[in-house]
């Protein structure tokens, strides 16, 4: 058990970095929760965890596909990031269609007076009594950054777990059947588990809603990152031991 940990110290560092990146990324994703679903708050109208998980897991699918054909770490991370970025950008652009052409309101934020990127005035365009609606450019860019970080984090965790398995003497070839493969299955499942833990912790930190990196709440991120750091160390130890035990059976 202990030698498994010392032998895979680099992989554990990867997992911990990945967990912290996931936790940090959630702070970038503009989610408004139920108020945003009624177009009364800025952001995407769904829960933090659901959206971060959707983006991150899409990135995981891309990274898993890339991992199948190459073992170049930067390329795997980049493809994970791109997968998550595409998912979240598509979600936000379609959300904008609905907000602008369906509901009929201007994308605007009530947290800041001017958009830091486009320099447009925000406060004039906020409906009476609401906290903004839709996705102004700054939130959109922030969401893309969040998707990018989350995708990198998820891909890093997955890559590290696969490496641990390879070190324990397993193979990770792709299979064209519906039943799949032991190492891929267990590594993906651990990645999903670690992802959910690290997506829920920061969403408690931001209280369920955030607008992006211009939001005052964004400054609270060190708290969630420290919490995720500690929690991910535990998960990493446990996951590395469980996967290296696979080699013995």
């Amino acid at each position: 058990m202990i030698d498994a940990l010392t032998a895979n110290i680099l992989s554990m560092v990867y997992i911990i970095i990945g967990g912290v990146l996931i936790s940090w990324s959630v702070h970038f994703v503009p989610v408004g929760g139920a108020p945003a679903a009624m177009a009364q708050a800025t952001g995407i109208g769904t829960g933090t965890v659901q959206l971060a998980a959707g983006a991150g897991l899409t990135g995981l699918v891309s990274a898993g596909f890339m991992m199948n054909v190459t073992d170049n770490l930067p390329l795997i991370l980049a493809s994970g990031a791109v997968g998550a970025m595409i998912m979240i950008a598509v979600t936000m652009i379609v959300g904008t269609w609905v907000y602008v052409y369906g509901v009929g309101c201007v994308p605007s934020s009530a947290k800041v007076k001017v958009d830091p990127i486009t320099k447009y005035r925000q406060d004039l365009y906020v409906s009476q009594g609401t906290e903004g609606h839709g996705l102004p450019t700054v939130s959109f860019v922030s969401g893309v950054i969040g998707g990018c970080l989350g995708g990198i984090g998820g891909a890093l965790v997955y890559y590290a777990l696969i490496e641990v398995g390879l070190a324990a003497g397993l193979t990770a070839g792709g299979s064209s059947t519906v039943t799949g493969h032991e190492l891929v299955g267990i590594a993906a499942m651990f990645a999903i588990g670690i992802f959910f833990v690290n997506a829920v912790i920061p969403s408690y930190n931001i209280g369920g809603t955030i607008e992006g990196f211009h939001d005052p709440k964004w400054k609270k991120w060190p708290k969630a990152v420290i919490s995720s750091f500690v929690a991910t160390i535990l998960c990493a130890v446990v996951a590395v031991i469980a996967i290296s035990q696979l080699g013995g059976i």
Binding site: G33, V200, G208, C235, V238
Partner: peptide, 27 residues
């Protein structure tokens, strides 16, 4: 009142559960 809705806590429950379950069975 968690601030993020009930589903998040179910997800973290299973996220922790899956890591712990496979670890326990392996050792």
């Amino acid at each position: 009142g968690l601030g993020t809705g009930v589903p998040s806590i179910g997800m973290i429950s299973l996220g922790m559960g899956i890591v712990a379950a496979l670890f326990g069975l392996s050792v």
